[in-house]
Design a protein around this nucleic acid. Structure first.
Lengths: 327, 327
DNA sequence: CTGTTAGCGCCTTCAC
DNA sequence: GTGAAGGCGCTAACAG
């Protein structure tokens, strides 16, 4: 391990001078600067990030707290967060709940992006109180050092309901997600609000866990119970995929007997039979916006405490939209 | 920011004593230990990881170098690597090529797992030479501080070829991936070896970029050129999905006119029409094995320089396997 | 058992 | 323009 001291010795200057020279800081004579640079190169010197961080009180690293990359929704978004941070010279460390406290409290991180519903507000408040800027993507939260970058889930649900109603469908069933998820709750809010504004009530409501399996089971149960909605509004695509399977088993035609819609626009949505009408969540833009917000906070600039990312309806055959649309 | 010094002062002991007490190190009298613990709690003290790392010369963090989480193959594997490392008290920092040198040279990392074909061997050698243990998942490499954990790509290809031949298919075309990918090259090796051992030659060979789009274009080209293979051996699933689309466009039936096989067993493979026969890559086991190998290296234990992870044939309808198999 | 001392590698006043 | 000294927060000898 070659340190600045070694470089200084080789260049026959004091460590401080070597430091200044390498960091282009104060005025150092061109001659010494060159000697130092040369010595550094000769020794293959590389600054020790940890030592530097200790001194600067900045690690150039931000954490991304999430529940797991498992789902098809996250990958692109995480990538986007990473890339955006990288553009600003920041590294990203992926962390799950167990490590989060240690990482933040230990000041291993300069800041964090959070997308993990189970994490309690209290923990976020604690971390924020220790003066660590954060951006949350899965809840509204008013607190110093904390900003929210959220999806317009309600808007998406409303648009979807409007689409279904416009197609003349009236008996809509809601196949929902976990109540501990912000996105899930807001999607539900939008659905119910839109429906009641139209003077309607849902035919049925079931709750699932946002998985394909969960969707299949829920819809099987629904059908077994004798319900015959004209449309299933599923709160995410994976659930909708399960719903399609359950309907196929029962010999019900989609969309002629029952229309099905999802939410997220995962890749799979273009491959189901029929292809799935859904709400596109702009994952790249979402992640980038979150990262940018954090960068601003780190720079000490003031930014809106809350930002909303728009979503977009994607019409395909599962809701009876004309074939060929929605690629 | 409350430091050990504050705790020591509050507990009326020396910093070193406080350190010992909190880390349960040397024998400290129960009374002092308690006083220190209490002071720490009262002050809401948390050790500063960076300072600790500087001293210990260990960051408890390992890097995962990859090309991007984009693809459907990576998510599960990365997750598995992460979880395995977490079990050993290590954090994982995801890094892409541009940041890798800085992170390793700056000793921000204790070690690294590498899965990124474009990264030159030379860089890995440099890093290894700086005494950083690494595990590579995408190349064979003999070098101190470096071990390989690889997929049995050849075995998978051979098994697949055997399956196709057993179904009586003879005119096989190879739809390959990028030549700079280790997995891609090995899959090709296995295919050609198995075929030539059977005394056969491929009908055609095309190269793609492992994407769906690439597969579609390649197969379109193949068909436009007048080729009429009885089976398309695609070197990954995404390519195979593209191939299925191209065949559908041409009105060719799968598997009756042309059989199609993939490699990886991504989720999508169960949803194509017909469902895709492929080689299952055990992503969780693969990631875990890589992580374990790194942990062993970090602990200074000697481990085999190379380990191979087995793969498994998954028969579905696209190769004419009886429906109902392969879930 | 506890305190004193000496760094880890770097950066940054502050004199010269 | 350059060097000496101090300290970031923590740990590990070594004394007492």
């Amino acid at each position: 391990m070659v340190s600045l001291k070694d470089v200084a010795r080789k260049a026959k200057v004091a460590v401080s001078t070597a430091s200044l020279a390498l960091n282009n800081k104060s005025r150092v004579s061109p001659a010494t600067r060159r000697r130092v640079a040369e010595a550094a190169r000769a020794l293959d010197y590389y600054p020790h990030s940890i030592a530097r961080s200790l001194k600067n009180r900045r690690t150039q690293t931000v954490g991304f707290l999430m529940g797991g990359f498992g789902g098809p929704v996250y990958a692109e978004m995480v990538q986007s967060v990473h890339d955006t941070l990288a553009k600003h010279g920041l590294d990203m460390i992926v962390c799950f709940a167990p490590a989060f406290g240690r990482l933040t409290h230990g000041r291993m991180l300069d800041g964090a992006v959070v997308l993990d519903a189970p994490t309690p507000n209290r923990l976020l408040e604690q971390v924020a109180a220790r003066d660590m800027p954060m951006v949350v993507m899965d809840r509204e939260f008013r607190c110093p050092n904390l900003r929210s970058v959220l999806l317009d889930n309600q808007g998406g649900s409303r648009a979807m309901v409007a689409h279904l109603l416009a197609r003349g469908l009236r008996d809509l069933a809601y196949v929902g997600g976990p109540k501990d998820s912000y996105d899930s709750r807001r999607r539900r809010d939008g659905f119910f609000a839109a429906l009641s504004e139209a003077g309607l009530e849902p035919t049925a409501e079931v709750v699932t866990d946002f998985t394909e399996q969960g969707g299949r089971d829920a819809v099987r149960g629904l059908l077994a119970g004798g319900a015959r909605p004209r449309a299933l509004f599923c709160a995410n695509d994976e659930t909708a995929v399960g719903a399609l399977q359950a309907l196929a088993e029962s010999g019900l035609a989609v969309p002629d007997d029952v229309a099905v819609t999802g939410f997220d626009d995962i890749e799979l949505a273009r491959y189901t039979t029929p292809r799935l009408t859904t709400v596109r969540v702009p994952r790249v833009a979402w992640g980038a916006a979150a990262a940018e917000a954090l960068v601003e906070s780190l720079a000490g600039r003031t930014t809106p405490a809350r930002r909303t990312i728009g979503v977009e309806l994607v019409l395909r055959e599962s809701s009876g939209a004309p074939a060929g649309e929605g690629r």
